[in-house]
Simulated assay, not measured.
Amino acid sequence: MQTFSYKTESDIVKDEGRNRFSRDTDILSSGSGKVVTGTVLGKLTNGGKFKPLAPDATDGTQIAAAIILQHADATAVDQEVVNLKRRAQVVLQNLVWPGAITAAQKQTALDQLAALGIIARMGV
């Protein structure tokens, strides 16, 4: 994971469903480390917990499934977090990606988010 300046959810989300329809409370899996707002997450096939996107993985985390909306430290224990999971517009340049992600992998992840109704656009 790369080092980033801390962002807030308003730096990420530009539009979402009424009454926070776009958000869910989920579990960030132990071993994820320190995760910052805007990190694209994958969902573990076994257990349904979330971890930062890992495009080369085979455990479910290779598929973009959410964007975390808070800072969390899941280095040693699971953490309850708020994730953006549907019907929203987000600021593309403020999303946080794995350090070694390729342009093709990023586009695949953006397509996976779009399938959930999360559209990433350049913006401020």
Score class of each variant (00 low, 15 high):
Ser32Ala: 06
Gly33Gln: 01
Gly33Lys: 01
Gly33Cys: 09
Gly33His: 03
Lys34Ala: 11
Lys34Leu: 12
Lys34Glu: 10
Thr37Trp: 01
Thr37Ile: 04
Thr37Cys: 11
Thr37Pro: 03
Gly38Ile: 02
Gly38Phe: 04
Thr39Val: 09
Thr39Gln: 09
Val40Glu: 08
Val40Pro: 11
Val40Gln: 02
Val40Tyr: 03
Leu41His: 05
Gly42His: 06
Gly42Glu: 04
Leu44Ser: 03
Thr45Ile: 11
Asn46Asp: 14
Asn46Ser: 15
Gly47Phe: 02
Gly47Lys: 06
Gly47Met: 05
Gly47Ser: 04
Gly48Trp: 05
Gly48Glu: 08
Gly48Ser: 05
Phe50Leu: 06
Lys51Pro: 07
Lys51Val: 01
Pro52Ala: 06
Leu53Glu: 02
Ala54Arg: 07
Ala54His: 10
Pro55Cys: 08
Asp56Lys: 15
Asp56Ser: 15
Ala57Cys: 07
Ala57Asn: 08
Thr58Leu: 05
Thr58Lys: 14
Thr58His: 09
Thr58Met: 04
Asp59Cys: 07
Thr61Lys: 05
Thr61Glu: 01
Gln62Glu: 14
Gln62Gly: 13
Gln62Arg: 08
Gln62Thr: 07
Gln62Leu: 03
Ile63Met: 00
Ala64His: 02
Ala64Gln: 00
Ala66Cys: 05
Ile67Met: 10
Ile68Pro: 04
Ile68His: 04
Ile68Phe: 00
Leu69Glu: 10
Leu69Gln: 09
His71Thr: 12
Ala74Gln: 01
Ala74Tyr: 02
Ala76Gly: 03
Ala76Val: 12
Val77His: 11
Val77Pro: 00
Asp78Phe: 10
Asp78Ile: 08
Asp78Tyr: 06
Asp78Ala: 02
Glu80Val: 13
Glu80Lys: 10
Val81Lys: 02
Val81Arg: 07
Val81Tyr: 00
Val82Thr: 15
Val82Ser: 11
Val82Trp: 04
Asn83Phe: 15
Asn83Glu: 07
Leu84Glu: 12
Leu84Ile: 13
Leu84Tyr: 06
Lys85Gly: 03
Lys85Phe: 11
Arg86Gly: 00
Arg86Gln: 15
Ala88Gln: 12
Ala88Met: 13
Ala88Lys: 03
Ala88Trp: 13
Gln89Gly: 11
Gln89Lys: 14
Val90His: 07
Val90Arg: 11
Val91Gln: 13
Leu92Glu: 13
Gln93Val: 03
Asn94Asp: 15
Trp97Gln: 06
Pro98Leu: 05
Gly99Cys: 05
Gly99Asp: 14
Ile101Asp: 10
Thr102Val: 10
Ala103Val: 14
Ala104Pro: 10
Ala104Glu: 15
